[in-house]
Amino acid sequence: MNLRNKLVLMAVNPNSSFIYWEITDKTVEEFGVDPKNIELLFKLFDEKHHEILEFDSNFALGDYYINHENNHKAIYVKLFLKVGGRLQYILSSNIIKTLDKTIKSSKHSNLIDDGISENLIYTSTLLGGR
């Protein structure tokens, strides 16, 4: 199995995404940092490269659920390693399109409005359904 740095972003729903990462000891050591004592910083950006939020972790392998607004078209994450008080860029995640839960026409038809109220995401209550 190849050991490689990983930073993978996945959409969960319009307001939440999931990210997992793995940073190899080799990568950390290249910056003179002890793998047992690391500080990682994650920054979430939108499609215009505007920073939305950040979070940190002390684990080389981990995951996190990110809650965000759904008014961005796409998002991605950049991972940094803290080296002597400075941020060292390590890698970027894949870019995901956010799940834009809106009616795309300003002129609603009765059919769409009916559909939204009648057909609003129906959840099966029967065993065997999803």
């Binding site: 839960k101 795309k104 059919l111 769409i112 559909g115 939204i116 609003l120 995401i121």
Partner: peptide, 18 residues
Amino acid sequence: LDAHGLLYATPSPKNGVY
């Protein structure tokens, strides 16, 4: 698709899910 997969399509579907 499930209903909302079509109802939230771009552009809006003129015949709804029908």
